[in-house]
Computed example of a mutant assay.
Amino acid sequence: MADPTYTPPAVWTHDAENGGRFAAINRPTAGAREDKDLPVGEHDFQLYSLATPNGVKATIMFEELLEAGHSDAEYDAWTVNISDGSQFTSGFVDVNPNSKIPALLDSSGDQPVRIFESGAILLHLAEKFGAFLPTDHTRAEVLSWLFWQIGSAPFIGGGFGHFYAYAPEKYEYPINRYAMETKRLFDVADQRLAQSEYLGGKDYTIADIATFPWLAPFVFGTIYNEAKTFLSIDEYEHVGRWVRQLADRPGVRRGRIVNKAWGDEDEQMLERHSAADFEGKKF
């Protein structure tokens, strides 16, 4: 059956009653809604995030840097609860005017630097530490896959995930539209990974770190209800191989639970300030 038709008005207006699960926080305006400072720890890097696919990119990057021996990559990670609007406090908006996680303050230089958007954080840290980003002719390939992921995420999350799992009503057209695009993106990755061990080539890079948190939950069946079955994710065997390979990396295992505020208590980590915080945790 076709969806009911909707005729847009001449001028759109915000209806606070028609926002579904996120109605309490979604508004068509930017800026701070509450005057509140952010917590600050002892390390040069202060990360404000949540263990969503975009947030996990940053924590995996930090844990991979530490695993690789970059001891000066120690960081403090603070949970920002995006469900209660913590991303709209004045302190967070000062770091990220777009009010999205993750956001990073880097005080390792002469002047503090703010970095927002997950891809920018990965690129900043890769260049700062000279890690997970090649400097030879393969650099362009890695950056291409990094920005492929950044551009693809809204179709998967705000597109498929929203209409399939979160929208207050289920409509056939948007679900079909974004299911098709999500499967196409999986096929892009699957064909690439049939040719190459990693997205950027023979080495593990920030392209893999960026993409893993979005594709892995589909492979493991832990995102958007029954999405794994609905999208026949097991068809993408090369993506599955790559996901399981990366999931075994110690840095990935640790990074996936930092700023996690749900699940069993031994899988949660609201704050992370040192390696000792992982003691007793399941990761």
Rank of each mutant, 00 (worst) to 15 (best):
104 L>A: 01
72 D>N: 08
68 A>P: 07
142 V>S: 10
139 R>V: 03
119 G>D: 06
117 E>F: 08
141 E>W: 12
154 P>H: 06
235 E>T: 08
67 E>Y: 15
265 E>H: 15
34 E>Q: 14
79 T>V: 06
226 E>G: 11
268 Q>N: 13
223 I>H: 04
262 W>D: 13
49 S>G: 07
208 D>L: 02
184 R>M: 05
281 K>L: 13
88 F>V: 04
128 K>E: 09
192 R>M: 15
6 Y>M: 03
195 Q>Y: 05
78 W>Q: 10
212 F>L: 09
8 P>M: 04
228 K>F: 09
5 T>A: 15
92 F>H: 06
262 W>C: 11
153 A>G: 00
191 Q>K: 10
107 S>W: 04
231 L>T: 15
78 W>R: 06
148 W>N: 00
54 N>A: 11
93 V>P: 06
136 D>N: 08
169 E>M: 11
146 L>V: 01
59 T>S: 01
169 E>N: 07
246 L>I: 15
29 T>A: 09
249 R>E: 13
17 E>G: 06
31 G>R: 07
35 D>I: 11
133 L>W: 09
197 E>V: 10
103 A>V: 08
248 D>P: 08
223 I>V: 10
255 G>A: 14
177 R>T: 08
110 D>C: 02
236 Y>F: 12
20 G>A: 15
90 S>V: 02
23 A>N: 09
164 Y>R: 04
61 M>E: 05
142 V>F: 03
233 I>V: 12
183 K>S: 13
136 D>E: 05
102 P>N: 04
137 H>A: 12
194 A>Y: 06
162 H>W: 09
204 Y>C: 15
256 R>H: 03
240 G>K: 04
140 A>K: 15
102 P>L: 05
13 T>M: 03
232 S>G: 09
34 E>D: 14
27 R>F: 06
119 G>C: 05
56 V>K: 12
85 G>N: 13
67 E>P: 11
103 A>K: 15
230 F>H: 05
268 Q>K: 13
211 T>Q: 13
245 Q>L: 15
121 I>H: 03
165 A>L: 01
193 L>F: 08
225 N>Y: 15
249 R>V: 09
37 D>H: 02
217 P>A: 01
14 H>K: 15
43 H>K: 11
196 S>I: 08
182 T>S: 14
84 D>Y: 02
248 D>T: 14
68 A>F: 06
71 S>M: 09
27 R>M: 05
79 T>F: 08
192 R>N: 12
178 Y>I: 00
123 L>M: 05
197 E>L: 02
258 V>D: 06
49 S>M: 11
61 M>K: 07
233 I>P: 09
84 D>I: 04
13 T>C: 08
125 L>H: 03
32 A>E: 13
100 K>H: 02
167 A>E: 06
181 E>V: 08
19 G>V: 02
172 E>N: 11
261 A>W: 13
213 P>T: 09
195 Q>L: 10
178 Y>W: 00
181 E>S: 03
98 N>S: 15
47 L>Q: 11
104 L>Q: 05
203 D>A: 11
63 E>Y: 14
194 A>P: 09
36 K>A: 10
236 Y>D: 02
160 F>M: 12
213 P>C: 07
83 S>L: 14
199 L>D: 01
184 R>D: 03
12 W>T: 14
149 Q>P: 05
36 K>Q: 03
68 A>V: 06
52 T>C: 01
279 E>F: 06
243 V>A: 10
61 M>W: 12
255 G>E: 00
